[in-house]
Design a protein around this nucleic acid. Structure first.
Lengths: 222, 222
DNA sequence: GCGTCTAGAGTTGTATCCATAATATCTGAA
DNA sequence: TTCAGATATTATGGATACAACTCTAGACGC
């Protein structure tokens, strides 16, 4: 009985309102809508075979998360100019640094073990930038969770959602993958030693390198 | 012409969608709906004389900002338990500290002057906790703006919105107002000296005291 | 030929309707 | 008296209809 109810519930949820949201996010991720593109409600409604109501709700959610911005009356996919990118990295470094620091305090042995395992298995896909990028996200997410701070986790989710607007991954640059994994190792070591400050610094340094790499990409150097 | 257009624009914005959202936020601020209360769409629609559609959109926005949480199918005003409060302050201290640090780098002389002016005029309302609380918010907001980081400003807006769920103000405690203004002065001095690190520390310390005060309030000590 | 005004198309915002799911109440039986 | 089941009421989610506003294109006047 309960089982049936939950099945049904899940069914409606997927079909109903989380869906439109996720469908739009996926479409943006897949590059169907690029930064700067205008999102027309009726078009999205047609594409996803739902009415405008759930679409509107999804769009509003995305707007509050600054994945979309208003251009006059209509909504466009947000794009990050140079300044915004710098601002985003500044906030991200601070929040991720805090997460690492807290993780050093709260991570269980099992969590630390999982982090080491992740690095080990990531070394095997070091030549596949896309898979490595997803693995990188899981790694950082694991640290967020270890912080035991739900607010922080939420805020970092938002930051990463904004980062999703960036098409390329800095891990595609030659040698960056290897470097990033070594930096990951430094971070986990600091967490294992329960040295919050070192973990904070290590993560900030890691993001600093990542930001530098991205700047080089944008400058067309690579 | 441009002027007229902007007037019209402003008119629609205010009348249309920001409205329901702001009305609900105000109602929560005013204590019409307390944490834990259930928000019924049709009731809100009646109260604000609009249809359920804008209400629904506003509620979704508020949910994504975690001012509301789901209880089964319906939405209730979020409440902060002890742990959540601690988590919130942890994140807030980090972000506000960053804002102060950046403000030390970017604030113009005029902005610094305004901050000093604010402290001076706040001393005149030191015995009116409610007015002082609003003034306090303006002060912090001014520092956020001086950081010149729009992402940070947005994130801090969210944090403060969550703080709005706390009914009482820690500034009502005897002597806390005086103390807080002195701490404000320390912060602005550090900003004036362009000492980012000192500004960061001063703001973190300020929030640390505020948090302590709140804990005492919640513990019923005051 | 250029500028302005008007008309129309398209898009967003609001209201209402309908269906489904959840909850509460009432009744009957143990 | 209490528990269980059924029914009725109520709230939410989705669809559609309607209104208001904006932007563009075309025509007319200067």
């Amino acid at each position: 009985m309960i089982f049936i109810a939950r099945q049904k519930r899940k069914g409606t949820d997927v079909k109903s309102h989380k869906d439109a949201y996720q469908l739009i996010v996926d479409a943006i991720d897949a590059g169907v809508y690029a930064p700067g593109d205008r999102l027309v409600e009726s078009e999205l409604a047609d594409r996803f075979r739902v009415s405008r109501t759930p679409i509107r709700e999804a769009l509003q959610r995305l707007e509050t998360q600054s994945m979309l911005t208003r251009d006059g009356r209509s909504l466009i996919v947000a794009s990050l100019d140079h300044n915004q990118l710098a601002e985003l990295y500044e906030v991200r470094a601070e929040l991720e640094g805090l997460a690492a620091q807290l993780a050093a305090q709260h991570a269980t042995h099992e969590e630390i073990h999982v982090l080491y395992d992740m690095i080990a298995s990531d070394r095997k896909i070091i030549d596949d930038p896309n898979r490595l990028s997803r693995a990188n996200r899981r790694f950082h997410n694991q640290i967020h969770l270890a912080s035991r701070n739900r607010y922080l986790i939420r805020q970092l989710e938002m930051v990463h959602r904004s980062m999703a607007l960036l098409t390329s991954t800095s891990l595609a640059v030659d040698g960056r993958g290897e470097m990033a994994l070594n930096e990951h190792e430094d971070i986990v070591k600091a967490i294992e030693l329960r040295d919050g400050e070192a973990a904070n610094k290590a993560l900030k340094k890691h993001l600093s390198f990542a930001f530098e790499t991205r700047l080089k990409i944008d400058a067309g150097e690579v």
